[in-house]
Write a protein that binds this DNA or RNA. Sequence first.
DNA 1: AAGCACAATGATTGCGCTATCATCAGCATG
DNA 2: CATGCTGATGATAGCGCAATCATTGTGCTT
Lengths: 358, 358
Amino acid sequence: MLAKNNSQVQILPMKTAKKRSSDKKITLVDVADASGVSAITVSRVINQPEKVSESLRIQVQKAIDALGYIPNQHASSLASSKSKVIGVAIPSLSNIVFTEVLRGIYEVMGAAGYKVLLVDTHYSPLEEEKMVRTLLSQSPEGLIITGGDQTKACQNFLHKARIPIVQIMELLADPIDMNVGFAHGRAGFDVVKYLLGQGYERIGFIGARMDPRVQQRMQGYKLALEQAGKFEKNYIVTTPEPSSIGVGGELFKSLMASTNGVIDAVFCVNDDLALGALFEAQRMNIRVPQDMAICGFNDIEAAGYVNPSLTSVSVGRYEMGVKASEMIIRVLNDKPIESKKIDMGYEIRKRASTTRLL
Amino acid sequence: MLAKNNSQVQILPMKTAKKRSSDKKITLVDVADASGVSAITVSRVINQPEKVSESLRIQVQKAIDALGYIPNQHASSLASSKSKVIGVAIPSLSNIVFTEVLRGIYEVMGAAGYKVLLVDTHYSPLEEEKMVRTLLSQSPEGLIITGGDQTKACQNFLHKARIPIVQIMELLADPIDMNVGFAHGRAGFDVVKYLLGQGYERIGFIGARMDPRVQQRMQGYKLALEQAGKFEKNYIVTTPEPSSIGVGGELFKSLMASTNGVIDAVFCVNDDLALGALFEAQRMNIRVPQDMAICGFNDIEAAGYVNPSLTSVSVGRYEMGVKASEMIIRVLNDKPIESKKIDMGYEIRKRASTTRLL
DNA sequence: AAGCACAATGATTGCGCTATCATCAGCATG
DNA sequence: CATGCTGATGATAGCGCAATCATTGTGCTT
């Protein structure tokens, strides 16, 4: 009685129905009918093929291919409460910093069979809260979110979610779950120390967007200058606008204007700003690095190739995405992780734009 | 009998169960019980609030907030066969060209309440086929995919999907459904005509990755030079590697070497390559634009700011994402669209790097 | 006052799949 | 030869929600 009742129901009514309207969605049952097995066997062929005998497996697979069957993930997720979805929230799609992290995430998650549902929070905690709701409504198996300034409500949701969560980009004092990042404040501090070491004395600061991580870099900058007794608050020029090369040029001009040109170095919170400052300095006939040092942040590819090459702070963005993803996958597979918090570190890539010539 | 049977079942058993284990997933029914209404009313509060009286709506909303209820999208999608998901397939996450298109897509889709499921095909039609299956398994309501070189099987799936599909980036002779892009071949042709018009005579070509769109640009380049009787096949240097500034520099050196430096202009298929060529030329003490014109493609921000500023072909990437998304949304809302095919056009931004000085 | 339209709410059912348990044949064990 | 075990397959139930249709109450018309 294994194939009898099936073959009865199968051929005649199904076939005609299907031929007539090829728009009908093909389901597991259709495949089961077509291949003369039960629905659950088809399910097994797809999800646990090792549990099905080879002959049946081939037979079913043939039907799957013939019908062009594509499983309905919603039904599967509902029944199994496994979505194979990882939610990712980043503040900006257009910022190269995040797209490289994303690359790492997609690489690892894709290989592990997870889909990535990506949302853009536009640097707004409120937007982020909405987006996290959206993510959670997809029953993700894990979450990667940026930074630590979630709203109270958002934190609540996240805690209640009971799934592995990694907060990336910065090191957090009190992470929700896991954390991969680096110390932005210390990086800013180190940059200034380095510039001071190169003999630059009046070090300006250019910042845009001013998200929490940028603020931390600025605090580091400030601290180092204060320690050296060289902090002047009008050496800082910032804007809430997003970063861009154009904005970098504008801010550089502002800085030069507001300080009457006494500045002999600029720390820009990212490389777009730094490139803008550099190009603008060239147009203003200010020699870099002789009269002006310029240091960026992130070490994008252009930094190494522009003339003069641009000093910048290199951080393993791709690796950060990889690490965060691996942590989640390990947790999902009940494997131990070394630590819930990983400091990716950073490195100042010293190049021509800050090298005092002898 | 409107609230009676509810209140019976409700308070005592549910409450205790919930208090004990706060990890139990909260469902529509929990909210219904907690607020003394039926499940379907809760559903309405969420999806069609205008159909529920204000008093009840507030009462239910209170319960939703109190319980921190988040709807299960899988169940919703399964029951309503509406996923509110749009699938997007792009060949590369790290290419700025696509991230800007993505921005446009996210902007429009987010505002319209759609989630974006994004996959990366790594410029491989086979990978793309797999990814499209993944997308389709999520029952997306629409699809945005890049270009036209899908595998046969993939095309099959797409045709069978019966959802609005937009192929973006290039103009296709035979699109699956809708199409938004621009004419890469013509753009390449026009660039060469422009360079010839500027008086450059021995125009080289630098290309990387060599995806279909890059090939089209190259064909345009070739055609224009052939028409002018100035085509030399050793003026073309390409690599299958991904584009980067570094690769641009290398290819420029190769081109100079293989042509003994007779080249007086280069058309680079994108701005990364062009910047690499420009920076390398500077290092080689080749004057741009006096001894060498350099033209890029895509008109990224840096092109306008680098010294000398870089001529490039500007295309509305963000707008392309917006247009594609709007088309899908219009179709989903049964609104008419002007045309199934949209040519976004392009514009050569003529800058210093190709301006023959008098 | 009867009839009707309409707004507000609820009961039932099923979306497509998988978890769970049941069944059964084949075979080894004592 | 009874017992238990294993591997392969199936039957059933239910995941959480919304479509559909049913029910009730309200105000209005005539």
